[in-house]
Design a binder for these strands. Structure first.
Lengths: 211, 211
DNA sequence: GAGTAAGTATGCAGGGGCTGCACTTATAGC
DNA sequence: GCTATAAGTGCAGCCCCTGCATACTTACTC
């Protein structure tokens, strides 16, 4: 450890290089996937363009698909945190709404990648399926939080139903309107749609609230 | 075409052999998967025990996973038919209930395979995920039928939400109680659970019915 | 600044899923 | 029987992914 570093320790050269390599791989993979299709792009090609060995790619990502979906765990962790830290009166749905609102700030780089990702996934059946499967983590998270809201026991299926409906609603919004990615519409519009969904869900939740 | 056949043409030797081979492959694959795990069982081993060439297996099934989930399309088709043919007053939920009730007759062979399948899928993360992904077809089917019930337009997300909740509910019942496979409990018990779910869903549906 | 420890990149060999193609074998209809 | 058609097979090969041994880099210590 060097002395004189500020509150944030700037990571060493090694760490920075690693981060850079990782980002390069992602960037190039997304570009190639978008350009010529996911299945049609091989690990070897990505490695070639990224100027690393194919073996190295697997040191960074457990699988080809994980290059594409690498952000999921991080986003999920953020959501988990928001749910954990929500104030006393706030429901899980409230927390989710805030989370989404907070995620709509279009960080240019992130947004660009996200748009690419969407296009790539849209163009491949398997990816669509697996992409949805990855939402299972979010669903689980929401189900747990909703269970708390509903004072539901562990065997109660209501939280899962609500969480599933929720995920389905957002999937529907995303999948079914590929012509209108969220960055093209304004955040306000996006929030309006989301509030719509929330309204429905709250209605459904009320109907299920018999505790 | 031979003359003198009854209403049902008994398929020729070729067709019967084919069917037999197909069933043998499924049977042996399920046994091996259950015995030593899905990932640990190779196509070569299945082929070996089934006394066919590995290449032949791929003539019958597009992928290893499809050996396991081979019934899904057929069941889905049956559900689609039930939904199509439901009488005027019956809702999609009613039709689904009937469909499930009709499916609970424990055909010994079918039930045995189904139990095996459940165990196999339960023991493998990827299979659980993909198994659920295969439910997307059912979800879609139900969503379409529910959309009719709700007089919902094409962009309406309510039907999807309900369908997703529905599928989630049944998944929850199946996944979360691996100790109690459906054949062990009586059909009456199973139907009681299902009616429970149906009650919730009808409640949720009512809340969404603002047409 | 040389030397060592730890971390990273790479090459190689190989397993396993899956496919296209050519070829043999078995059934069907004449 | 004899031929058209379909099923089964063997082979070569692509691709994802893994374990392992090895070269290379950065980091730390003296």
């Amino acid at each position: 450890m060097e002395a004189g570093n500020a509150t944030e320790v700037r990571p060493g050269l090694r760490e920075r290089k690693k981060q850079k390599t990782r980002e390069t791989i992602i960037e190039i993979a997304l570009e190639l996937f978008a350009e010529r299709g996911y299945e049609e792009t091989t690990i070897a090609e990505i490695a070639d363009v990224a100027e690393v060995s194919p073996r190295t790619i697997f040191a960074y990502f457990p699988s080809k698909e994980d290059i594409l979906f690498c952000d999921t765990p991080e986003i999920q962790e953020r959501l988990a945190q928001v749910l954990r830290d929500r104030p006393e009166g706030a429901t899980a749905l409230d927390a989710l709404r805030d989370f989404i609102a907070g995620s709509l700030s279009p960080d240019s780089n992130e947004a660009r990648n996200e748009a690419l990702r969407r296009r790539i996934v849209a163009g491949n059946e398997t990816l669509r399926r697996n992409g949805r499967a990855r939402l299972a983590g979010f669903e689980q998270l929401m189900a747990e939080a909703i269970a708390v809201d509903l004072h539901a026991g562990p065997g109660d299926i209501r939280p899962r139903m609500v969480a599933a409906a929720l995920v389905a609603a957002f999937s529907a919004i995303q999948d079914h309107d590929p012509a209108a990615p969220p960055e093209s519409s304004s955040p306000e519009q996006a929030m309006a749609v989301i509030d719509d969904v929330m309204g429905f869900l709250r209605g459904g939740l009320e109907a299920l609230r018999h505790d």
